[in-house]
């Protein structure tokens, strides 16, 4: 895999300090599974965070007992043994795979508009205000309705590719967009483009048709 577009440092930092919404964390962690480069950036940020911890001045007295717990230590061989959950291949890495009922090839797509289908994925914190997570399938040549975001939108390409004002995005790539970015992706090969999309808040659509579409589409 030749990844050209990575996760922005601002998003990675929010992932590291634990302030990223769950929907977006799913996309980030799924990309990290296939991207040594982004994992290296995460490792650097964790090193920095750890420096802030170990070199800070302690200001509180600890009540907890400092003696070692009287319990068995984990055996590395057992703790890192491949878990049985990977017996069913879903064609995508975790944690996305955990949230899919079936293999990517067998997703029961729901049609949104001609050429575009989706499949919503549930997250533990399911309130829509916290954003949504979904799979999106774009048929070759179909333009997505032009839209911008009222929050953050992050996309990972799982199959195929698309092209928009910001460049060409292929399997494994990430489009990490701030709000107020307008874009209109088009699947640019003869294959469907399948993406994982997370938002931190619902999207705004531009144009009369898109505004009509918005309540229906909900993306």
């Amino acid at each position: 895999m030749n990844i050209q577009h990575h996760i922005g440092d601002d998003t990675l930092m929010a992932y590291v300090n634990g302030t990223l919404p769950e929907t977006i964390s799913v996309v980030v962690a799924t990309h990290l599974a296939i991207c040594p480069e982004c994992r290296k950036n995460v490792a650097l940020m964790e090193d920095i965070a750890a420096l802030y911890l170990v070199e800070s001045e302690p200001a509180y007295h600890v009540d907890a007992d400092p003696t070692a717990p009287d319990i068995q230590q984990l055996d590395p061989e057992i703790a890192t043994a491949a878990s049985t959950k990977y017996q069913t291949d879903k064609g995508v890495p975790n944690p996305l795979a955990d949230r899919m009922p079936v293999h990517l090839e067998d997703i029961p797509w729901k049609k949104l508009i001609p050429g575009i289908s989706h499949y919503p994925l549930s997250v533990a914190d399911g309130s829509r205000k916290k954003g949504v997570l979904r799979l999106l399938k774009i048929a070759p040549g179909t333009p997505m309705p032009e839209h911008s975001h009222s929050g953050q939108e992050i996309t990972m390409i799982l199959r195929g590719s698309y092209i928009d004002d910001l460049g060409r995005f292929q399997t494994g790539d990430i489009a990490d967009l701030d709000d107020e970015v307008w874009h209109q992706p088009v699947a640019d090969t003869d294959k469907d483009c399948i993406c994982l999309i997370a938002t931190s808040a619902p999207l705004k659509f531009s144009g009369f048709f898109s505004r009509l579409l918005q309540p229906l589409v909900g993306i």
Partner: peptide, 24 residues
């Protein structure tokens, strides 16, 4: 800390995942 405050445990990639691409 995250486990204490969130419904969901922290999401991390898993090197045992067959789809995981290891560091070169």
């Amino acid at each position: 800390k995250i486990d204490r405050f969130r419904k969901e445990t922290r999401l991390v990639p898993d090197p045992n995942d067959p789809s995981y691409i290891p560091d070169s």
